[in-house]
Design a binder for these strands. Structure first.
Length: 662
DNA sequence: ATTCTAGTGG
């Protein structure tokens, strides 16, 4: 059974990978014919009699002869071994038995066939055997990455690439391109650039495909345009010519970075160089026009394209719709949507979503809802985006019950979730006050291993705060911070106050620190705010840190409150430090502070050294104790050594006289 | 023999 599947599977594979080779195309290039020849030989090697009887699938006579000659070269044992591996139910033992006989290209052919048949268990098993037995080349890696695709982890692929010993494979441009492309598909643009540099150091000579691969990565990153320019520069330095795919990529980068003028520039430049724009180029330029909502330019471009003999396809017309929507031309958008419907281009939700979202954001929520209902009545295929748009639109317009109903409907209808959808639903449930649903959604996220992002955390912290669950809000914020997200200052500030109100002083201080160590600039009033909270909680050591670091932003009365509190109940070992610091910050210390400090020392005579230090320091800064404090000291001078006390006090007295005499 | 370019949601 599998043999016949293979026999028809391969030629289809060729047609898919190499569109110009389809049977309708009579002008295949010599190199293209080579491609066919090779594919057919492996097809026959794998299929034996079956494919040969199927003459209709084979190309011209000359090629057929070529195929027969090649087939003859393959020993019957090898053919048998290939078939055996392919049909094996226990790959490892089969390979152990007959693997020796197989050549790398045989194994590669089997690997590709496994890929085309989507035999996802067998691919890695065969590949690992090939690795362990060193029977693989660049092509093997390429096929492995291509067919395992989404099932591979980015870091694993990098690891695999780094562990390649074979120098030729390691700098093989196809293999490098395919690794880079894989990383970019996984959203790891940074890693791909890093790896690209390393590959070049190791001897890779990049080609235009390498550059179009990397350029494609610039589409989805911030500041992608300047990164793209660097790549273009690099490419020109290497004397590589920009081809149509490169132009397609840079146009897409321009569009996604809101650079419609630059897009126009590249579009004209490619025409000047004699390249004819295709649907990709037109659609990217159109997309660039959608940024500025310039429907006039867009209409002209579509005309231009038609005169060039191109028929606007689904993507072009959908992008045109996007331009109209961005331009606020809802009448025209409606008409175009109807046209899309009649062309069969509105079978899934995308064009509806574009218009719906545009309407909702333009304040026409009712019209958006009508379109949503209309879309559902027509049973338009949906992955839930339409729901997502309407839920967030309802939330924006504070129609939380409607949002909640739609979130419920989503859960009942769809069973595929992503982070954005989860955030949307959380937002709806939170704003509608549905605690049970909130918790359920969180559990669901956990189960699906969808990790929360910045928005998720913000939604939750706001909600928990609103419900007066401040400690939960605090724990959530801590979690957020631990995951590397910096919460908004206003959110921190209000949570800090709320925590203070429920006497969670330590937690309030943690929130303050999250803010303080995360941001360079913050509202100056926040320091005084946390100071009051810390004083209320008698967290004087922490309060001292705040005062010391931010004295310039704290009002005089607040500093005084802090000083008084610290003298009264702060750590006795730090009293002198605190006084010196406050003085150093330009705050004049009043007599009551010294009185309280001295009383503390008298209560704990073992700290006599600190008292003497204080009394010695005072006159050097122009301070003297008042008479009641002086009497207090004298009364207790036996505790500290009469002689010493007398000396320091007389020094203060002389200072006082010196101050008063002129 | 293998690598690359276009349109949605917070």
């Amino acid at each position: 059974m599998e043999i016949s599947v293979l026999g028809t599977g391969l030629p289809r594979g060729i047609a898919f990978r190499n569109p110009p080779l389809s049977s309708s195309n009579s002008s295949a290039s010599p190199s293209a014919i080579r491609t066919v020849r090779f594919q057919c030989s492996s097809s026959i090697a794998l299929t034996g009699e079956t494919a040969r009887t199927n003459d209709g699938e084979l190309p011209s006579g000359r090629t057929t002869i070529e195929v027969q000659r090649r087939t003859a070269k393959i020993s019957t044992e090898r053919q048998a071994a290939i078939i055996e591996v392919h049909q094996s139910s226990d790959l490892d033992s089969t390979l152990a038995r007959v693997g020796e006989m197989l050549k790398v290209q045989d194994l590669n052919a089997i690997l590709r066939n496994f890929g085309q048949l989507n035999r996802l268990q067998d691919i890695p098993q065969l590949f690992i055997w090939m690795q362990e037995n060193r029977k693989l080349n660049a092509s093997s890696y390429v096929s492995f990455i291509r067919f395992m695709g989404n099932n591979l982890d980015a870091s694993k692929v990098v690891e695999m690439y780094n562990s390649i010993q074979d120098e030729a494979a390691k700098t093989n441009v196809y293999l490098c391109n395919s690794v880079l492309s894989f990383l970019i598909r996984k959203g790891k643009f940074g890693s791909s650039i890093k790896l690209f540099k390393k590959m070049k150091d190791d001897g890779l000579i990049p080609d235009v495909v390498t550059y179009s691969t990397l350029l494609a990565g610039c589409i989805k990153i911030k500041d992608g345009y300047s990164k793209a320019l660097e790549l273009i520069q690099d490419l020109q330095l290497k004397r590589l010519r920009m081809d149509d795919v490169i132009y397609g990529a840079i146009l897409a980068v321009c569009a996604s970075n809101c650079k419609w003028e630059e897009a126009e520039f590249y579009f004209n430049q490619m025409k000047d160089e004699g390249l004819s724009p295709n649907q990709y180029h037109y659609s990217s330029l159109l997309n660039a026009y959608s940024v500025c909502g310039d429907s006039k330019k867009a209409d002209e471009l579509v005309q231009d394209m038609k005169s060039a003999g191109l028929v606007p396809n689904k993507v072009i017309l959908t992008t045109l719709l996007k331009v109209y929507v961005r331009g606020g031309l809802f009448e025209k958008s409606r008409e175009l949507l109807t046209e899309l419907e009649s062309l069969g281009y509105a079978e899934d939700e995308m064009p509806y979503c574009l218009l719906m979202d545009g309407l909702a954001k333009a304040g026409q929520l009712q019209e958006a809802k009508q379109l949503f209902d209309e879309m559902r009545k027509k049973h338009v295929r949906s992955d839930g985006y339409a729901h997502s748009i309407m839920i967030s639109a309802f939330c924006r317009n504070k129609l939380f019950d409607e949002a909640k109903l739609l979130a419920n409907d989503f859960e009942a209808t769809f069973h595929k979730y992503d982070l954005v959808m989860m955030n949307n639903m959380l937002c709806a449930y939170c704003r509608a006050g549905e605690m049970e649903s909130v918790m359920q959604t969180l559990r669901k996220m956990d189960g699906l291993a969808i990790s929360p992002d910045y928005n998720t955390f913000h939604i939750l912290i706001r909600y928990f705060s609103k419900e007066k669950m401040y400690l939960l809000a605090y724990r959530t914020m801590n979690d957020m911070h631990g995951k590397g997200y910096q919460p908004l200052e206003e959110l921190c500030s209000s949570l800090m106050s709320d925590l203070g109100k429920v006497k969670a002083y330590q937690e309030a201080f943690s929130v303050y620190n999250i803010l303080r160590y995360g941001k360079r600039t913050m509202c100056k009033a926040i320091h005084e705010k946390i100071l009051h909270i810390l004083l209320a909680g008698r967290l004087l050591k922490d309060a001292y840190v705040v005062v010391k670091d931010n004295a310039e932003f704290i009002s005089r009365p607040a500093i005084k409150r802090f000083a008084a509190a610290f003298m009264k109940v702060g750590n006795i070992n730090m009293i002198n430090d605190v006084l010196k610091t406050l003085h150093g910050c330009g705050h004049k210390l009043d007599k009551d502070l010294f009185h309280t400090a001295v009383s503390r020392y008298i209560d704990q005579p073992e700290k006599k050294d600190l008292l003497l230090q204080l009394l010695q320091w005072m006159p050097s800064q122009g301070y003297v104790v008042d008479s009641s404090t002086r009497n207090l000291i004298l009364k207790n001078s036996h505790l500290f050594g009469r002689q010493l006390v007398a000396e320091v006090l007389s020094r203060q007295h002389m200072k006082l006289k010196a101050q008063n005499s002129p």
